[in-house]
């Protein structure tokens, strides 16, 4: 199951990067997001999976598509030269090699066993909410201040009138 979802996620991510039409690129990004949420389900994190679909695949992507359609971005002419494609390919290979050697180095046994919390009700809305309002109360509040500051900032930078 993991390999199917992971494969589709990587494939659609590749399509997204290589596709020249912005709308189709955005669509394949949605597929990637959906696959990611599938992974969260495998990891027992149901709430995160649902949020992933609602927030990313839903809200943010709709916003993306709106912007793309509003701006009416034209398809760019011309292709990348073979030289450049080769260079990019080489880079991807290099990074991939680093990651593979890292995984080899790490091996299976150095990863800790599953954390205890995963036993009862891990990943459900109730469990997440409970933790959020008890153990992680402070970060939760800080995050709200963070969002307030971000909203204020966005309003300032995007305000129409320059004064």
């Amino acid at each position: 199951m993991f390999y199917i979802i992971g494969g589709v996620a990587v494939l659609s991510a590749l399509i997204m990067v290589t596709n020249k039409k912005p709308v189709s690129a955005a669509m394949s990004l949605i597929v990637t997001m959906l696959c990611l949420s599938g992974m969260y389900v495998i990891l027992d994190a149901h709430l995160i999976a649902a949020l992933q679909i609602i927030v990313y695949a839903g809200a943010i992507m709709v916003l993306f598509l709106f912007v793309i359609m509003l701006l009416n971005i034209q398809e760019k002419e011309g292709r990348l030269s073979g030289h450049k494609i080769f260079l990019q390919f080489a880079w991807i290979m290099l990074v991939g090699y680093v990651f593979i050697s890292m995984v080899k180095l790490i091996g299976g046994d150095s990863l800790p066993a599953r954390v205890e919390g995963s036993i009862n009700g891990f990943g459900t809305t109730k469990a997440v909410g409970e933790i959020l309002f008890t153990d992680f109360l402070l970060p939760f509040e800080i995050a709200s201040i963070l969002l307030l500051a971000a909203i204020v900032g966005a309003v300032i930078l995007a305000k129409a009138k320059v004064d």
Binding site: I142, A143, I145, L146, I156
Partner: peptide, 13 residues
């Protein structure tokens, strides 16, 4: 991390 983000986002603006 949250503190860092709060600081950084304010500074970006």
């Amino acid at each position: 991390f949250l503190g860092l983000e709060l600081m950084s986002i304010s500074l970006y603006v």
